[in-house]
Amino acid sequence: MILSSNNISSHSKTDLHVLWSLQVFAVVAGSLLVLVIGFILRESWPALSRLGLTRLFTDPGWFPTEHSYQLTPIIGGTMLAACGSILLAAPLGILSALFCHFYAPPLLGKWYRHMIELLAGIPSVVFGFWGLVVLVPLVASWHPPGPSLLAGILILTLMILPTIMLITHSSIAQVPSAYIHSATALGLSRWAVIWHIVLPVSRIGMLTGVFLGLARALGETMAILMVCGNVVQLPSHLFDPIRTLTANIALEMAYALGHHRSVLFMSGLVLMGLVLCFVSVAEALRHKANHAIAK
């Protein structure tokens, strides 16, 4: 910061070169987002201008060879999988963060946290592979066919749980211990302290985690591609196979041409919009939480 050009009286030639080259790098990095959005827009433009957004909902179905591009079942499947996994992962993640802080013996709590960090580091393709080899047959033995919405929800739950758990964990750690001590001194039981003090005080942090988890669940590709069965349909129950936006792109990009390809880019645009919405909500919440702490 001290180096900003007006602070230094002597502008040697090399210094200017350094500043210019750094500026070039910064401009490249800063314009990357514009480039990404621009290219996705450019590629989806034929579909956007010729077909329009409405056809994504009014066409008879998803038959790219017959130029019929209805995305409703795919968007529905995406939403169902993401919402289902958040419904499972949010309580599990919050409970396990509470476990580390209030229930576990210190050493076990530390191990458990490390385990969750390891879980966060497992690549999605490995989750997908394990889901395909272990989870899908398990679901099939309960209720065929196996590759299903349920399998997708379960795998996604495992994948977004670390996000929710780790963020909740750190926001609980920020609850002043004085609150916990004085609540305990009032004769509140462990759960009463959690319910009345810890959860309300750290709720913004928890919400941040939930929204980031939701964003991650929506954007997840590989695991869901491998365990969900990829049938384009609105599922009537948990054991029906589904196809998500991400899986649709991954499956059909390889051979898509013309309008089909353009529609796939458009669905990528829709997906990016959805994910960025949730990420910005999470960022706004994080901002709010930081302000609350600073106050």
Binding site: G219, T221, T246, I249, A250, M253, F265, L276, V279
Partner: peptide, 14 residues
């Protein structure tokens, strides 16, 4: 850059 960090990987693929 913050927004870019949130873009799903499949979109980077596209």
């Amino acid at each position: 850059l913050d927004v870019l960090a949130g873009v799903p990987s499949i979109v980077f693929g596209l």
